[in-house]
Computed example of a mutant assay.
Amino acid sequence: MTVNYAGLALVLNCGSSSVKYQVVDTTQDEPLASGLVERVTHHSEAIKEIIASLSEPGSGVDLSTLTVVGHRVVQGGAEFSAPTIIDDEVERQIALLSTLAPLHNPPNLAGITAARSAFPNLPHVAVFDTAFHSTLPEAAYTYAIDRRVAQEHGVRRYGFHGTSHSYVARETARLMDRDPSELAMVVLHLGNGASATAVHGGVSVDTSMGLTPLEGLVMGTRSGDIDPAVTLHLARTAGMTIDEVDALLNRQSGMLGLTGYSDMRDVWKAAGEGSREAELGLEVYCRRIRGYVGQYFAQMGALDAITFTAGVGENDDGVRLGALQGLEALGIVMDPERNAGRKKEPTLVSAPDSRVQVWVVPTNEEREIALQSVAAVS
Results as ranks from 00 to 15, higher is better:
Gly220Tyr: 12
Asp266Gly: 10
Val90Thr: 12
Arg39Phe: 15
Val69Lys: 01
Arg147Phe: 09
Thr307Ile: 08
Tyr158His: 01
Val361Glu: 04
Tyr158Met: 00
Gly70Glu: 07
Arg288Ser: 15
Ser181Lys: 06
Val356Ser: 04
Thr142Met: 11
Met255Glu: 05
Tyr261Asn: 03
Asp87Glu: 12
Ser253His: 00
Asn105Leu: 02
Pro120Trp: 06
Val312Leu: 10
Thr67Arg: 05
Ala376Leu: 07
Asp88Met: 09
His233Asp: 09
Ser17His: 12
Gly257Lys: 02
Leu282Gly: 08
Arg338Met: 13
Val186Ile: 10
Pro107Ser: 04
Asp317Asn: 06
Ile369Glu: 01
Ala376Arg: 13
Ala46Lys: 02
Ile242Arg: 03
Ile86Gly: 12
Ser81Tyr: 03
Val218Ala: 08
Leu175Trp: 00
Val125Leu: 03
Leu8Asp: 08
Arg367Ile: 10
Val218His: 06
Pro137Arg: 02
Pro106Tyr: 06
Val168Arg: 02
Glu79Ser: 14
Ser17Arg: 10
Gly202Tyr: 05
Thr135Trp: 04
Leu371Lys: 00
Thr26Tyr: 02
Thr197Trp: 01
Leu371Ala: 01
Thr237Val: 14
Thr67Val: 14
Leu232Pro: 08
Val205Arg: 06
Met240Val: 06
Val127Arg: 00
Ser181Arg: 05
His43Gln: 09
Arg157Gly: 02
Arg287Pro: 12
Pro106Cys: 09
Met185Glu: 06
Val230Tyr: 06
Ala278Met: 12
His200Glu: 10
Ile289Ser: 07
Phe119Tyr: 11
Asp29Lys: 08
Leu348Cys: 15
Asn364Gly: 08
Gly193His: 01
Thr163Leu: 00
Ser373Pro: 12
Asp88Arg: 05
Asp62Met: 07
Leu109Met: 02
Glu279Ile: 15
Arg92Asn: 15
Ile51His: 04
Thr41Trp: 07
Thr26Arg: 00
Ala376Tyr: 06
Thr2Phe: 10
Ala115Arg: 01
Ile289Thr: 11
Thr2Lys: 12
Pro57Asp: 01
Gln299Val: 15
Gly291Phe: 07
Arg72Thr: 07
Ser166Ile: 00
Asp316Ser: 13
Ala33Val: 08
Cys14Ile: 04
Gly216Phe: 12
